[in-house]
Design a protein around this nucleic acid. Structure first.
Lengths: 116, 116
DNA sequence: TCAATTAGTCTAAAAAATATGACTACAGAA
DNA sequence: TTCTGTAGTCATATTTTTTAGACTAATTGA
């Protein structure tokens, strides 16, 4: 079953599909990295500590299926593949910023922001 | 391990904790129902088709742990318990609205909105 | 030609989330 | 005192998500 079908099938409440899409174990990080620039498979595997091939591959595929990331084959030097935020993906940035803003207001914070 | 500890432990990116909190199978629905008024356990069990005691109980506990819902013991007629959106919970409403807005813009839509 | 890097897939196992059904405990009504 | 409704818990299954590790296949560099 494709990601699309899953969401078309039983999606009672409007925000739910998007929440589901964004809430995999690695997808928020991947999205945030995509905001900073193009992504590459092995790069993600190196940068995201603890992640494994399979999960990265699935996350990329789902984000691509939703047209949040564009997959581009770069026919250069070392022929490779790049994932870039699509326009739709870019329009998600403010949504993320609001989620971050809320989290900082309340203290659902991240460790790297905590001084030790 | 409590819900708090889980999120304090390894929360690399700011929006992640909130996404995780909101993305359980029933939590978005529960939150949305809470926007309309106080919730009660058996009421949710009746209203949310397909949900079971355990999941409702866990979702309520997590939303309560995060202080998004307040749990109130109502010492009236049939002594019972009500869950209400806290101030923090209310401040989440615009975040939800933005998620919904994005979903409607793109077509991550819900079935009830699709004409057939 | 051999080894490394690229970007994955596949199968199977482990872990996490959800579901099922029995059970508890209290209050009020019949 | 038994039955109904309140709000759960608990142990156990089932389902879903994530991981580990072997494998593929094309390109590139030495």
């Amino acid at each position: 079953m494709t990601t699309e079908n899953k969401l078309e099938k039983e999606n009672e409440c409007p925000a739910e599909g998007l929440l589901k899409l964004l809430s995999g174990k690695w997808k928020p990080q991947i999205f945030l990295l995509a905001v900073s620039g193009p992504l590459r498979f092995n790069g993600l595997l190196r940068d995201i500590k603890g992640a494994n091939k399979q999960s990265i591959a699935v996350a990329l595929r789902e984000l691509e299926d939703f047209e949040i990331l564009d997959k581009n084959i770069i026919k250069l030097k070392p022929l490779h593949i790049e994932y870039n935020l699509s326009e739709k993906g870019k329009s998600l940035i403010p949504v993320f910023r609001q989620l971050e803003f809320f989290s900082e207001q309340q203290n659902i914070k991240c460790e790297t922001q905590t001084e030790h």
